Computed example of a mutant assay.
Amino acid sequence: MRLRFVLSQTFQGLSRNLAMTISVALVTFVSLTFVGAAALLQIQVDNLKSDWYDKVEVSAFMCPANSSTPNCATGEATQEQIDAIGDLLASDALAPYVEEVYVETKEDAYEAFQEQMEDTVWAQTVTVDQMQVSYRVKLVDPEQYQIVADELEGRPGVEVVVDQREQLEPLFLILNRTTLLSIGLAGVMIVTAVLLITTTIRLSAMSRQRETGIMRLVGASNFFIQLPFMLEGAVAALFGAVLAVGGLFLGVRYLVEEWLATSTPWVQFVDTGDVLTVAPFLVLAAILLAGISSIVTLGRYTKV
Protein backbone atom coordinates (compact mmCIF):
# COMPACT_ATOMS: atom_id res chain seq x y z
CA MET A 1 0.00 0.00 0.00
CA ARG A 2 2.77 2.42 0.93
CA LEU A 3 4.75 1.57 -2.21
CA ARG A 4 1.69 2.20 -4.38
CA PHE A 5 1.12 5.55 -2.67
CA VAL A 6 4.78 6.57 -3.13
CA LEU A 7 4.71 5.63 -6.81
CA SER A 8 1.44 7.48 -7.40
CA GLN A 9 2.88 10.60 -5.75
CA THR A 10 6.02 10.29 -7.85
CA PHE A 11 4.19 10.08 -11.17
CA GLN A 12 1.81 12.85 -10.17
CA GLY A 13 4.81 15.06 -9.50
CA LEU A 14 6.37 14.15 -12.83
CA SER A 15 3.16 14.94 -14.72
CA ARG A 16 2.68 18.25 -12.87
CA ASN A 17 6.21 19.39 -13.73
CA LEU A 18 6.45 17.73 -17.13
CA ALA A 19 8.34 20.56 -18.79
CA MET A 20 10.91 20.72 -15.99
CA THR A 21 11.21 16.92 -15.99
CA ILE A 22 11.98 16.92 -19.71
CA SER A 23 14.51 19.71 -19.15
CA VAL A 24 16.22 17.68 -16.42
CA ALA A 25 16.37 14.62 -18.67
CA LEU A 26 17.83 16.61 -21.58
CA VAL A 27 20.45 18.39 -19.48
CA THR A 28 21.42 15.11 -17.87
CA PHE A 29 21.58 13.53 -21.32
CA VAL A 30 23.95 16.22 -22.62
CA SER A 31 26.17 16.22 -19.53
CA LEU A 32 26.49 12.43 -19.37
CA THR A 33 27.10 12.29 -23.12
CA PHE A 34 30.13 14.51 -22.58
CA VAL A 35 31.24 12.32 -19.68
CA GLY A 36 30.83 9.16 -21.76
CA ALA A 37 32.56 10.71 -24.77
CA ALA A 38 35.51 11.70 -22.58
CA ALA A 39 35.74 8.16 -21.19
CA LEU A 40 35.56 6.62 -24.68
CA LEU A 41 38.15 9.06 -25.98
CA GLN A 42 40.53 8.08 -23.18
CA ILE A 43 39.94 4.40 -23.99
CA GLN A 44 40.78 5.23 -27.62
CA VAL A 45 44.01 6.95 -26.56
CA ASP A 46 44.98 3.93 -24.45
CA ASN A 47 44.22 1.60 -27.39
CA LEU A 48 46.39 3.65 -29.73
CA LYS A 49 49.23 3.78 -27.22
CA SER A 50 49.18 0.04 -26.57
CA ASP A 51 49.01 -0.68 -30.31
CA TRP A 52 51.47 1.87 -31.68
CA TYR A 53 53.96 1.99 -28.83
CA ASP A 54 54.59 -1.73 -29.31
CA LYS A 55 55.74 -0.91 -32.85
CA VAL A 56 57.99 1.98 -31.85
CA GLU A 57 61.55 1.67 -33.12
CA VAL A 58 64.71 3.63 -32.44
CA SER A 59 66.65 4.17 -35.66
CA ALA A 60 70.35 5.06 -35.76
CA PHE A 61 71.38 6.47 -39.14
CA MET A 62 75.10 6.24 -39.85
CA CYS A 63 76.98 9.10 -41.47
CA PRO A 64 76.59 9.22 -45.26
CA ALA A 65 79.01 10.87 -47.63
CA ASN A 66 79.00 14.68 -47.64
CA SER A 67 76.93 15.02 -44.48
CA SER A 68 76.86 18.48 -42.86
CA THR A 69 76.19 17.10 -39.36
CA PRO A 70 79.00 18.01 -36.90
CA ASN A 71 79.24 14.40 -35.77
CA CYS A 72 80.04 13.42 -39.37
CA ALA A 73 82.83 15.96 -39.87
CA THR A 74 85.33 13.15 -40.51
CA GLY A 75 83.28 11.85 -43.42
CA GLU A 76 81.24 8.76 -44.15
CA ALA A 77 80.94 6.17 -41.38
CA THR A 78 83.60 3.50 -41.63
CA GLN A 79 82.93 -0.20 -41.39
CA GLU A 80 84.61 -0.21 -37.98
CA GLN A 81 82.20 2.45 -36.72
CA ILE A 82 79.23 0.57 -38.15
CA ASP A 83 80.38 -2.64 -36.49
CA ALA A 84 80.95 -0.81 -33.21
CA ILE A 85 77.31 0.31 -33.13
CA GLY A 86 76.20 -3.24 -33.90
CA ASP A 87 78.36 -4.57 -31.04
CA LEU A 88 76.92 -1.94 -28.69
CA LEU A 89 73.34 -2.93 -29.51
CA ALA A 90 74.21 -6.60 -28.98
CA SER A 91 76.03 -5.95 -25.70
CA ASP A 92 74.86 -7.18 -22.30
CA ALA A 93 74.36 -3.58 -21.15
CA LEU A 94 71.54 -3.00 -23.65
CA ALA A 95 70.19 -6.56 -23.68
CA PRO A 96 67.35 -5.74 -21.18
CA TYR A 97 66.11 -2.95 -23.49
CA VAL A 98 66.72 -4.27 -27.02
CA GLU A 99 64.44 -6.97 -28.38
CA GLU A 100 65.59 -7.11 -31.99
CA VAL A 101 68.05 -5.27 -34.24
CA TYR A 102 67.71 -4.97 -37.99
CA VAL A 103 70.55 -3.60 -40.14
CA GLU A 104 69.54 -1.74 -43.29
CA THR A 105 72.41 -1.65 -45.74
CA LYS A 106 72.85 0.89 -48.51
CA GLU A 107 71.36 -1.55 -50.98
CA ASP A 108 68.33 -2.14 -48.73
CA ALA A 109 67.86 1.59 -48.27
CA TYR A 110 68.12 2.13 -52.03
CA GLU A 111 65.48 -0.50 -52.76
CA ALA A 112 63.12 0.95 -50.13
CA PHE A 113 63.65 4.45 -51.54
CA GLN A 114 62.89 3.29 -55.08
CA GLU A 115 59.65 1.63 -53.91
CA GLN A 116 58.50 4.73 -52.04
CA MET A 117 59.54 7.27 -54.69
CA GLU A 118 58.70 5.23 -57.77
CA ASP A 119 58.02 7.25 -60.94
CA THR A 120 59.55 10.43 -59.51
CA VAL A 121 62.60 12.45 -60.55
CA TRP A 122 64.26 11.66 -57.21
CA ALA A 123 64.18 7.92 -57.90
CA GLN A 124 66.14 8.45 -61.10
CA THR A 125 68.86 10.68 -59.66
CA VAL A 126 69.72 8.90 -56.41
CA THR A 127 72.39 6.19 -56.42
CA VAL A 128 73.25 3.42 -53.99
CA ASP A 129 76.38 5.23 -52.79
CA GLN A 130 74.27 8.18 -51.63
CA MET A 131 72.29 5.98 -49.26
CA GLN A 132 73.30 5.42 -45.64
CA VAL A 133 73.51 2.41 -43.39
CA SER A 134 71.06 2.39 -40.48
CA TYR A 135 70.12 0.26 -37.49
CA ARG A 136 66.43 -0.28 -36.63
CA VAL A 137 66.03 -1.25 -32.99
CA LYS A 138 62.83 -2.79 -31.65
CA LEU A 139 62.53 -2.24 -27.91
CA VAL A 140 61.47 -4.60 -25.15
CA ASP A 141 59.67 -1.72 -23.41
CA PRO A 142 58.89 1.28 -25.66
CA GLU A 143 58.61 3.45 -22.55
CA GLN A 144 62.40 3.08 -22.11
CA TYR A 145 63.28 4.38 -25.56
CA GLN A 146 65.34 7.23 -24.14
CA ILE A 147 67.89 4.85 -22.60
CA VAL A 148 68.74 3.32 -25.99
CA ALA A 149 68.63 6.68 -27.76
CA ASP A 150 71.06 8.23 -25.25
CA GLU A 151 73.51 5.36 -25.76
CA LEU A 152 73.50 5.83 -29.53
CA GLU A 153 73.55 9.61 -29.82
CA GLY A 154 76.97 11.16 -30.27
CA ARG A 155 78.71 7.88 -31.08
CA PRO A 156 81.39 8.10 -33.82
CA GLY A 157 79.81 7.57 -37.21
CA VAL A 158 76.22 8.15 -36.05
CA GLU A 159 74.58 11.04 -37.90
CA VAL A 160 71.21 11.09 -36.14
CA VAL A 161 69.07 8.95 -33.85
CA VAL A 162 65.35 8.98 -34.63
CA ASP A 163 62.75 7.84 -32.15
CA GLN A 164 59.38 7.11 -33.73
CA ARG A 165 57.69 7.85 -30.43
CA GLU A 166 58.53 11.53 -30.84
CA GLN A 167 56.31 11.56 -33.92
CA LEU A 168 53.41 10.01 -31.99
CA GLU A 169 53.56 12.16 -28.86
CA PRO A 170 52.01 15.29 -30.48
CA LEU A 171 49.02 13.20 -31.60
CA PHE A 172 48.51 11.75 -28.13
CA LEU A 173 48.94 15.23 -26.63
CA ILE A 174 46.11 16.55 -28.80
CA LEU A 175 43.88 13.59 -27.92
CA ASN A 176 44.59 13.97 -24.20
CA ARG A 177 43.80 17.68 -24.33
CA THR A 178 40.59 16.90 -26.18
CA THR A 179 39.71 14.50 -23.37
CA LEU A 180 40.35 17.22 -20.79
CA LEU A 181 38.16 19.63 -22.78
CA SER A 182 35.35 17.07 -22.83
CA ILE A 183 35.71 16.56 -19.09
CA GLY A 184 35.58 20.32 -18.51
CA LEU A 185 32.42 20.70 -20.59
CA ALA A 186 30.93 17.69 -18.84
CA GLY A 187 31.67 19.29 -15.47
CA VAL A 188 29.85 22.48 -16.44
CA MET A 189 26.87 20.51 -17.70
CA ILE A 190 26.78 18.35 -14.57
CA VAL A 191 26.63 21.46 -12.38
CA THR A 192 23.81 22.72 -14.60
CA ALA A 193 21.99 19.40 -14.22
CA VAL A 194 22.33 19.48 -10.42
CA LEU A 195 20.92 23.01 -10.28
CA LEU A 196 18.05 22.10 -12.59
CA ILE A 197 17.18 18.93 -10.67
CA THR A 198 17.33 20.93 -7.44
CA THR A 199 14.95 23.52 -8.88
CA THR A 200 12.55 20.84 -10.10
CA ILE A 201 12.43 19.12 -6.72
CA ARG A 202 12.03 22.46 -4.94
CA LEU A 203 9.08 23.47 -7.12
CA SER A 204 7.46 20.08 -6.65
CA ALA A 205 7.94 20.23 -2.87
CA MET A 206 6.59 23.79 -2.62
CA SER A 207 3.53 22.95 -4.71
CA ARG A 208 2.69 20.05 -2.39
CA GLN A 209 3.37 21.61 1.00
CA ARG A 210 -0.24 21.03 2.08
CA GLU A 211 -0.02 17.33 1.24
CA THR A 212 3.30 16.91 3.02
CA GLY A 213 1.87 18.74 6.03
CA ILE A 214 -1.06 16.32 6.21
CA MET A 215 1.31 13.37 5.90
CA ARG A 216 3.37 14.70 8.76
CA LEU A 217 0.26 15.13 10.93
CA VAL A 218 -0.67 11.48 10.46
CA GLY A 219 2.82 10.39 11.55
CA ALA A 220 4.65 9.84 8.27
CA SER A 221 8.44 9.79 8.59
CA ASN A 222 10.72 12.28 6.84
CA PHE A 223 12.03 9.54 4.56
CA PHE A 224 8.49 8.52 3.53
CA ILE A 225 7.63 12.15 2.78
CA GLN A 226 10.83 12.81 0.85
CA LEU A 227 10.89 9.56 -1.12
CA PRO A 228 8.46 10.63 -3.92
CA PHE A 229 10.49 13.79 -4.56
CA MET A 230 13.74 11.80 -4.62
CA LEU A 231 12.24 9.36 -7.10
CA GLU A 232 11.10 12.19 -9.35
CA GLY A 233 14.66 13.45 -9.70
CA ALA A 234 16.00 9.91 -10.07
CA VAL A 235 13.54 9.00 -12.83
CA ALA A 236 14.34 12.14 -14.83
CA ALA A 237 18.09 11.68 -14.38
CA LEU A 238 17.97 7.98 -15.27
CA PHE A 239 15.99 8.77 -18.40
CA GLY A 240 18.74 11.22 -19.36
CA ALA A 241 21.36 8.52 -18.68
CA VAL A 242 19.51 6.07 -20.94
CA LEU A 243 19.43 8.69 -23.69
CA ALA A 244 23.18 9.32 -23.23
CA VAL A 245 24.01 5.61 -23.43
CA GLY A 246 21.77 5.22 -26.47
CA GLY A 247 23.31 8.23 -28.20
CA LEU A 248 26.86 7.01 -27.55
CA PHE A 249 25.95 3.49 -28.68
CA LEU A 250 24.48 4.70 -31.98
CA GLY A 251 27.35 7.13 -32.52
CA VAL A 252 30.00 4.45 -32.03
CA ARG A 253 28.01 1.88 -34.00
CA TYR A 254 27.50 3.97 -37.12
CA LEU A 255 30.24 6.65 -37.05
CA VAL A 256 33.10 4.57 -35.66
CA GLU A 257 32.47 0.91 -36.44
CA GLU A 258 30.78 1.32 -39.83
CA TRP A 259 32.68 4.39 -41.06
CA LEU A 260 36.07 5.00 -39.42
CA ALA A 261 36.88 1.36 -38.71
CA THR A 262 36.11 0.26 -42.27
CA SER A 263 38.11 3.09 -43.87
CA THR A 264 41.13 2.65 -41.56
CA PRO A 265 41.15 -1.03 -40.58
CA TRP A 266 44.71 -0.89 -39.21
CA VAL A 267 43.59 1.33 -36.30
CA GLN A 268 42.01 -0.21 -33.22
CA PHE A 269 38.97 1.98 -32.56
CA VAL A 270 36.56 1.86 -29.64
CA ASP A 271 33.48 -0.27 -30.23
CA THR A 272 30.00 -0.76 -28.81
CA GLY A 273 31.47 -3.12 -26.21
CA ASP A 274 33.36 -0.16 -24.76
CA VAL A 275 30.11 1.81 -24.65
CA LEU A 276 28.47 -1.00 -22.65
CA THR A 277 31.47 -0.94 -20.31
CA VAL A 278 31.00 2.79 -19.69
CA ALA A 279 27.19 2.58 -19.45
CA PRO A 280 26.94 1.40 -15.79
CA PHE A 281 29.12 4.30 -14.69
CA LEU A 282 26.86 6.77 -16.51
CA VAL A 283 23.79 5.28 -14.80
CA LEU A 284 25.57 5.50 -11.45
CA ALA A 285 26.48 9.13 -12.20
CA ALA A 286 22.80 9.87 -12.89
CA ILE A 287 21.81 8.35 -9.55
CA LEU A 288 24.46 10.42 -7.79
CA LEU A 289 23.24 13.57 -9.53
CA ALA A 290 19.69 12.94 -8.36
CA GLY A 291 20.86 11.97 -4.86
CA ILE A 292 23.00 15.07 -4.37
CA SER A 293 20.23 17.33 -5.64
CA SER A 294 17.69 15.68 -3.34
CA ILE A 295 19.90 16.01 -0.26
CA VAL A 296 20.53 19.68 -1.00
CA THR A 297 16.84 20.49 -1.50
CA LEU A 298 14.61 18.25 0.58
CA GLY A 299 16.13 19.00 3.93
CA ARG A 300 14.89 22.56 3.68
CA TYR A 301 11.49 22.13 2.02
CA THR A 302 10.06 19.00 3.62
CA LYS A 303 11.17 19.33 7.23
CA VAL A 304 9.44 21.31 9.87
Score class of each variant (00 low, 15 high):
Leu3Gln: 04
Leu3Ser: 03
Arg4Ser: 10
Phe5Trp: 12
Val6His: 00
Gln9Lys: 13
Gln12Ser: 11
Gln12Tyr: 13
Gly13Cys: 06
Gly13Leu: 03
Asn17Val: 03
Asn17Gln: 12
Asn17Trp: 07
Asn17Ser: 13
Leu18Tyr: 05
Ile22Phe: 11
Val24Cys: 06
Val24Trp: 01
Val27Asn: 02
Val27Met: 06
Ser31Leu: 08
Thr33Lys: 01
Phe34Val: 03
Phe34Glu: 05
Ala37Gln: 01
Ala39Phe: 07
Gln44Met: 01
Gln44Pro: 05
Asn47Phe: 09
Leu48Val: 04
Ser50Asp: 15
Asp51Phe: 08
Tyr53His: 13
Tyr53Met: 15
Asp54Val: 00
Asp54Trp: 03
Asp54Arg: 12
Lys55Cys: 07
Ser59Arg: 15
Asn66Arg: 09
Ser68Ile: 11
Thr69Tyr: 12
Pro70Glu: 15
Cys72Asp: 12
Gly75Lys: 05
Glu76Cys: 04
Thr78Arg: 06
Thr78Gln: 02
Gln79Pro: 02
Gln79Trp: 06
Gln81Thr: 01
Ile82Leu: 08
Asp83Asn: 11
Asp83Glu: 10
Ile85Phe: 05
Gly86Cys: 04
Gly86Ser: 08
Asp87Tyr: 00
Asp92Met: 04
Leu94Thr: 10
Pro96Glu: 10
Tyr97Pro: 03
Glu99Gln: 13
Glu100Lys: 13
Val101Cys: 07
Thr105Met: 05
Glu107Asn: 11
Glu111Ile: 09
Met117Thr: 12
Thr120Lys: 05
Ala123Gly: 04
Ala123Met: 02
Thr127Ile: 01
Thr127Ala: 02
Gln130Glu: 14
Met131Trp: 07
Met131Arg: 01
Met131Thr: 03
Val133Asn: 09
Ser134Cys: 03
Arg136Met: 09
Val137Ala: 07
Lys138Val: 11
Glu143Phe: 09
Pro156Arg: 00
Gly157Glu: 08
Val162Thr: 12
Glu169Asn: 09
Thr178Val: 14
Leu181Arg: 01
Leu181His: 06
Val191Glu: 00
Val194Pro: 09
Val194Gly: 14
Leu195Ser: 14
Thr198Cys: 10
Thr198Gly: 15
Thr199His: 15
Ile201Leu: 10
Thr212Pro: 08
Met215Asn: 12
Val218Gly: 08
Val218Asp: 13
Val218His: 14
Ala220Arg: 08
Phe223Gly: 14
Gln226Gly: 15
Met230Trp: 06
Met230Asn: 07
Leu231Ile: 03
Leu231Cys: 07
Leu231Gly: 01
Gly233Pro: 05
Ala241Gly: 04
Leu248Tyr: 01
Phe249Thr: 08
Arg253Ile: 00
Tyr254Leu: 10
Glu258Phe: 06
Glu258Gly: 07
Trp259Phe: 12
Thr262His: 00
Thr264Lys: 10
Gln268Ala: 11
Leu276Trp: 12
Thr277Gly: 12
Ala279Thr: 04
Ala279Pro: 07
Phe281Ile: 13
Phe281Ser: 14
Leu282Ile: 05
Leu282Thr: 02
Leu284Val: 15
Gly291Tyr: 03
Gly291Cys: 08
Gly291Ile: 00
Ser294Thr: 04
Leu298Ser: 11
Arg300Ser: 07
Arg300Asp: 06
Thr302Tyr: 07
Lys303Trp: 02
